[in-house]
Design a protein around this nucleic acid. Structure first.
Length: 324
DNA sequence: AGCCAGGTAATCC
DNA sequence: GGATTACATGGC
């Protein structure tokens, strides 16, 4: 597959409001697996976006209360795109979200002392749109991180894009319309998605036929669960990440044990017990609390560590190499 | 060789 | 209803 070269077309200055801000842990999450869609060093971050008909590369840096976003594309960049990107980036990383209500609750909870000390000012991050985060959640179902990473790589290699900008090579998502005609057989035999191959075509048609404007409705999560293969976990990931509901978090066998240990002081517990306790301790902000607990757990040994600047050429070669 | 993983739905009593 | 089991796949 060819690599598209994106040119610098704009620079956005995005003010950060809502209290303390931790740039590094907002744009890079220690618990997130490597998708090839983004790369991070200690002080900068590269990420791809699909915005309407455009393929966009973004480099983020932070100085004195302002996130500086350099925009790269090979398409016809219009003023409307600038506003779309300003809105998308601000929302994706919560640059304008107030976190003091959560912090006030967390300061009362001993288990949150260390997470707060290490991560205060971190915001939820979800550069993925509703469709993209749903695909991630689908690939996480009943699967190891190694398996999820493999399936993500296969899907993006076979159906996504590769771009190069500002010295970095990254993958970019496919759109719902672009994979709506891909068959279950292809997802199964070529991309090795297992039983998830049956669900992905439904995601593609759902989001192809429901524009982002339609999805403002508050019953999106409920409606999405009507798709066979979407249960409480996948819907909650979409709600807590793409819809940025701070009260919601998806429970799985992995984070369940983290919450049981840190909040309840036991090795494991029922999801209902954990949810009840989290809502007691952090009413309205259990999702944010869950984010801090999980990211703190992975801070010392990140799933996908920060890149040393000298490692970028090796990163680029890995993506530009022998992939199909 | 199994076992099981950052779930879900179908099937059973 | 709540408990049990099949579902696909491949890493360990």
């Amino acid at each position: 597959m060819t690599i598209r070269h994106l040119d610098h077309v704009d620079t956005l200055h995005l003010p950060v409001t809502g209290g303390p801000f931790d740039f590094r842990h907002t744009v890079w999450k220690p618990s997130h697996y490597d998708t090839g869609l983004e790369a991070h060093t200690t002080d900068r971050s590269w990420r791809t976006f699909r915005v309407g008909d455009l393929v966009v590369g973004v480099r983020l840096m932070y100085e004195q209360g302002i996130v500086v976003a350099d925009i790269y594309t090979d398409g016809d960049y219009k003023p409307a795109h600038r506003e779309q990107l300003r809105t998308r980036l601000t929302a994706s990383y919560g640059f304008n979200e107030h976190i003091s209500a959560f912090t006030a609750l967390a300061e009362q909870v001993p288990a949150m002392r260390e997470p707060l000390a290490a991560l205060a000012g971190m915001r939820q991050s979800c550069p993925e749109d509703h469709f993209e985060i749903s695909v991630i959640a689908l690939l996480l179902q009943n699967m190891t991180i190694a398996g999820t990473t493999r399936m993500t790589r296969a899907l993006l290699a076979h159906h996504g894009l590769r771009v190069h900008f500002d010295g970095i090579t990254l993958r970019a998502w496919f759109t719902p319309a672009e994979i709506a005609q891909v068959t279950t057989e292809t997802f199964k035999e070529q991309d090795r998605l297992g039983y998830r191959a049956k669900t992905l075509p439904h995601f593609a048609t759902f989001f192809r036929d429901h524009t982002p404007e339609d999805l403002q409705g508050e019953n999106l999560v409920e409606k999405f669960q009507e798709i066979k293969g979407v249960g409480p976990y996948t819907a909650a990931v979409m709600a807590s990440h793409a819809s940025r509901d701070p009260s919601v978090f998806g429970i799985d066998v992995w984070n369940r044990k983290i919450f049981a240990r840190t909040i309840l002081g036991v090795p494991d517990a029922d999801a209902e017990v954990i949810t009840r306790r989290m809502n007691e301790l952090f009413p309205g902000h259990a999702g944010t609390a869950a984010l801090y607990l999980v990211e703190h757990e992975y801070l010392a040994t990140p799933v996908a560590p920060l890149l040393d600047p000298s490692g970028i050429s090796a990163w680029n070669q890995a993506l530009e190499g022998t992939t199909a």
